[in-house]
Design a protein around this nucleic acid. Structure first.
Lengths: 335, 335
DNA sequence: CGGTATCAGGAAAGCGCTTACCTAAGGCGA
DNA sequence: TCGCCTTAGGTAAGCGCTTTCCTGATACCG
């Protein structure tokens, strides 16, 4: 591994000069030396050691991202947004996949901290009052105390900058839509009860139910397609009178659609997030749209642009929007 | 930012001792000091500086991954596999999104090199004989020359370890399937002509066409859902006699399905990759399955387990498999 | 009781870079 | 001609760690 010293020796200059030339420092240098050094760099295939640079310069250039699972389209979409703006700022992005294990989140926060990242974006639902969650919060504070920046997406930490998707409002939108169509027997396929995202969306749905004087049949699943399919199958078996289902994300809605097809039933169904798949299933899925990529972009912007000193944490609300397609229709009075 | 020296001072020991205790070195230390140091660590919220550690230890622990686009389900799936085994080995994964720009690939290779990663996995199709491609190859060699390991997925570099999906065979499978069903007027919606993946899959299709004494109508698109939709719409307009379409990935197949629906036409259609969405569209998509997650896992294993010295590069072939669903059917003779 | 083996802990030399500071050589005006 | 300011380049002090080697103290042996 060629070092700067090798380059300097080969070019017959000091490491100081070599360093200046390679980094294009403002210090003037004769053309002669410049070409010699650059030639040495090329011949030795010299690549500077980033760790040494970080250490010497003491600047932070990378940013870390914590996601539950990159291969989940929900996070993939968010990640895309995060990466777009990070790249635009010339930042290296380190993506950490927690595989939905809270313990891994803690590990990764420290790891990113150790790697001197400039900022950490924590994406994805938090857990309702768990030990891991407060522990995480602690570490986030510790990281911020050392000058690092934190932005969270959809978490309920009110000490860091946050972009918060309108989960509750979205839930309301979904519920209101179904009730306005005349449905009375509606079930909700929710995500894991421990997640704040589940809780928030559910709260909105409940608010709609109350407003319309209705009740909801709630079951919990796991936000996956197959989980949604199973939940829907159970629901159809247990509650034959059901006319509509609200799934708390599109993956589960798609699963539910498959289950309904398998059971030969047709219920109105509404999803959440409006992921790309929504328009390609049959019937095309009505969904509560959340601009995922934008969520990521906003969060990265918060993370990268430090707020004025001693300002309170910034919060950016991202509205939800109902996208009506073919999977919901008015309930016809029983014939 | 607390340093080791701070911890040592606070615990009243030397940095050497502090370092040993924190890293659990085998050197024996009195319980007394151990607790003092650990207490200092906790009080100061000390997190070691990973850059300094890298520099001092001179070991490489991270691994880099180059993908065209994480949010593309194809790469998301591969990335998942990569990450699973990297995490199992306790490695930090740095994912670099090239946004399909060859120039960015070069940049990132150097960046990962500079960051002293232990290995780089280059995922995703290469370009047929472009300058950027040979340049990339050069840099890969330079990286390997410094002791770094490289594994490529589906690229035609025969100097590094590689896992190669059976693109050609898969193409043949797709073609043979369509021809066996009696289709004669079949079109192919290919990816960008410059990509090796396109070329390989196409070659297999051509081989099948030759074997069955048929010809193919080929159009190039961009591997995206909307690109596929546009291409299919054009195809339907230009060539009304078409009875089957082979799309070179599932995204385009899904788009084609949508275009056909819009045009009120029903042709047999076959996709490629068997991504999760394939079973959820209507009709469920027949597809040439490539185990994407496994592709990623294999590649990371190659990258992490160095081969015996001076052995030739290893190549792992991953077979393709035809998954027949509802989107392909026998051609009924025109009535 | 001297000598050596054992042990806990510290001093200090790097790891590869950046950069503040210094030096030597010209160039200039007076 | 002298003194001083540029200018081009070098010297060396870190950045925060790890680790080799060393020291002083204690234990153990004959």
């Amino acid at each position: 591994m060629a070092t700067l010293a090798d380059v300097a020796r080969r070019a017959g200059v000091s490491t100081a000069t070599a360093s200046r030339i390679i980094n294009g420092s403002p210090k003037p240098v004769t053309e002669e030396l410049r070409t010699r050094v650059l030639a040495a760099v090329a011949e030795l295939r010299y690549v500077p050691n980033a760790h040494a640079q970080m250490l010497a310069r003491n600047n932070r250039n990378a940013v870390g991202v914590l996601v539950h699972d990159v291969s989940d389209p929900y996070f993939a979409e968010i990640t895309r947004g995060l990466q777009r703006v990070a790249t635009a700022h010339g930042r290296l992005v380190i993506i950490c996949n927690t595989f939905r294990e809270p313990a891994r989140e803690l590990e990764y926060i420290d790891l990113l901290h150790a790697h001197q990242v400039a900022a950490i974006v924590v994406a994805g639902s938090g857990y309702l009052s768990s030990d891991a969650e407060t522990e995480l919060h602690d570490r986030m504070l510790a990281f911020e105390a050392t000058g690092g920046r934190i932005a969270v997406i959809g978490r309920h930490h009110h000490s860091s900058d946050a972009v918060v998707p309108a989960n509750e409002e979205g839930g309301y939108l979904a519920g209101a839509h179904l009730f306005e169509l005349g449905h009375t027997a509606v079930a909700v396929i929710a995500g894991p009860a421990a997640l704040t995202t589940t809780a928030d969306r559910l709260a909105g749905l409940q608010r709609a139910a109350t407003a319309f004087g209705r009740t909801l049949h709630i079951v919990h699943s796991d936000f996956t397609r197959d989980g949604g399919a199973t939940a829907a199958a159970d629901l159809l078996a247990v509650d034959p009178g059901l006319t509509a289902i609200a799934a708390l994300n599109d993956s589960m809605a798609v699963g539910a659609l498959a289950a309904m097809r398998a059971a030969g039933r047709r219920l109105s169904i509404i999803g959440f997030d409006d992921m790309p798949i929504a328009r390609d299933v049959t019937p095309a899925l009505t969904s509560v749209r959340l601009p995922l990529t934008e969520l990521g972009e906003r969060a990265m912007e918060l993370a990268l642009n430090p707020p004025p000193p001693n300002a309170p944490p910034r919060t950016e609300h991202i509205p939800a929007e109902l996208v009506i397609r073919d999977s919901t229709w008015p309930l016809k009075p029983a014939t």
